[in-house]
Amino acid sequence: MTEVFERFVNGIVKQTDSNHEESMDLSEELLSHLHCSYEDLLNEGYSKEEAMKMAMMNFGDEKEIGKQLQQAMYPYRRGMMLILAGASLIFAFSLYLLHLFTNGDALMIWLVLAVFVAASIMTLTLHPIQSLNRRLWMNGLLISHIFIFAYGGLMAAYLDRPYSNIASIFSYAVVLLAIILVYRTTIFDFPSSKQLLQKDAKWIHFINITIGIIIILITLFFLWAFMLFAAEMQAALLLLLIPTLLWMISYAVQMRLLAARHKGAAYTLAILQVLLIGVTLVIWVYGI
């Protein structure tokens, strides 16, 4: 009987984005409900066989329950991910064909990278793999997506009007959705189980993701401006990656400090980081 119930529960849990630990908890919870229902049915005078079948039948269709659980645990997450993957694929194919047939440029490497990232997001959404660390993989994919599609947005500017305007707006929308999903994934959907100070972790994540996005956009802007005016790529361009690297180190240090319950130190570092970016931006804007 337990094996049958476990198979049934497993079919439900597979429909959700839960990781291994969460799946175990969820399975345990669902199994206890099934057992209670089974016991009640036995007490009402049903046979073991009948009680088992009725307990599962009363529970409902496993796929339907799985979907409802997914929606309750992560509202609209799957829909957002599928919209992102679908819209990204449409954008990648359209931009590639427009560039090819209006400018004679085949952006083959970009197309392959863009399709690979969008198809991976789609695959992991439709076929969740519980053994993978979802947060690391999902955020890795989403950040790669932001870089690749922000670059696609810059390439859209080289098309003729009105294609350039339409493609640019499309790319901004796709990148914005990916940014929202990075916030969701990190802060709300999959918080780390290692962090005991969950509320503070959310704040530190929020500050760092925002700074990270600003740094990535400024880095891409400088890269684009350089490519616009300079004839050839230079090794000195790698210097542009220094702010991103420093941000990554600082982010990791803050999360370690928070995990070790050094709340004050983590916040101080986060605020210092914000001030540094703010002062740099003010000097840059008013200095020109």
Binding site: F93, Y96, L97, L100, G104, A106, L107, M108
Partner: peptide, 11 residues
């Protein structure tokens, strides 16, 4: 298919 088209129509 699009990559093949790219090789054909790239100028």
């Amino acid at each position: 298919l699009f990559v093949v088209l790219g090789f054909v129509f790239d100028k």
